[in-house]
């Protein structure tokens, strides 16, 4: 039965901001390493949300790695499923999936693909890949918590390009209608989608006003500021509040590797050996 006190990893657990900063860079290094196996990957989109992922997995999410499908766990669904490459190393590090799996990332028969498969990967709360579905899925999970009287939170990580999808706004409308204060969206607003700047491809601003008009509580700040991210997570409205929350996290695509930050073409790509060396050296320089 439900007993959220028997939890391995409680909410708000990390003490050190420095450690979480290092964790975000560790996610970047892992992403580079896994992309090396696949031959191509979503570096820059993962780098833009590395601090967000570090905050969620090492600070905010209530989890029980010994039981990844524990009914009281906080849920985390990816709208932007292509950043699973940054999630798998966290799940492995927390002991939810075997480390060996990482070494066969995307190889024939591997449970780990570019987009996550909930039937194969413990700790993945919902499969993802078709942009725009999973805020609705998260709303369904939040409704289920209401129906069962459970106190878990549901987090959904969306891209700002994802906001082009109409279903996101159907979900936003429904979450406000059903007063899902247990649903939290994070928009990784890195300003870039595959074909270029979101503002040129299909503008989504003013994002804050849009969510506010849909009845959500909205915060907006630098999504690489890990202490701000933790403060925000610690001060989320109580589970039984009636207003869903969204964070517009202003981020930089390719964050953490200067030549990637400068070139939006890195949404999907492959670092050759030279560039990989440069990228790794820059990140490791910060970790040293």
């Amino acid at each position: 039965m439900s007993n959220p006190t028997l939890v391995d990893l409680p909410r708000g657990r990390s003490r050190s901001i420095a450690e979480l900063k290092r964790r975000a860079d560790w996610i970047r290094l892992q992403t580079i390493e896994l992309t090396e196996i696949a031959g191509s990957g979503h570096y820059a989109s993962t780098f833009s949300c590395a601090e967000i992922l570090a905050m969620l997995y090492y600070h905010a999410l209530r989890l029980k790695p010994s039981d990844p499908s524990w009914q009281d766990r906080d849920r985390f669904v990816l709208g932007k499923g292509h950043v699973a490459i940054g999630v798998y190393p966290c799940l492995a590090d927390l002991g939810m999936l075997p480390q060996e799996w990482l070494r066969r990332y995307t190889r024939l028969g591997s449970p780990l693909g570019d987009h996550p498969d909930m039937t194969k990967v413990p700790g993945i709360d919902f499969s993802s890949g078709s942009i725009g579905h999973n805020l609705s899925v998260g709303a369904g999970m939040a409704l289920s918590a209401r129906l069962r009287g459970l106190d878990y939170r549901v987090f959904a990580l969306l891209g700002d390009g994802e906001l082009n999808e109409g279903q996101v706004w159907e979900a936003a409308m429904a979450a406000a209608h059903y007063r899902l204060g247990n649903l939290v969206a994070i928009v990784d607003a890195n300003g870039t989608s595959l074909d270029g700047p979101v503002s040129e491809v299909m503008g989504v601003e003013p994002i804050v006003d849009k969510w506010r008009a849909f009845g959500w509580k909205v915060d907006e700040f630098d999504g690489h500021d890990i202490s701000a991210l933790c403060r925000w997570a610690d001060r989320l409205p109580p589970i039984d509040s009636s207003t869903p929350s969204v964070l517009i996290a202003r981020t930089t695509k390719g964050k953490g590797v200067s030549f990637m930050e400068a070139d939006p073409g890195w949404h999907l790509g492959y670092l050759g050996p030279k560039d990989r060396e440069r990228a790794v050296a820059e990140i490791e320089g910060r970790l040293a």
Partner: peptide, 22 residues
């Protein structure tokens, strides 16, 4: 749950609820 005239949203919400065991 009547989700209004938003069929795709209904499908995904239903899937999310099913993922929680309903």
């Amino acid at each position: 749950f009547n989700v209004g005239i938003a069929e795709q949203n209904m499908m995904s919400i239903g899937a999310g609820m099913a993922a929680c065991g309903h």
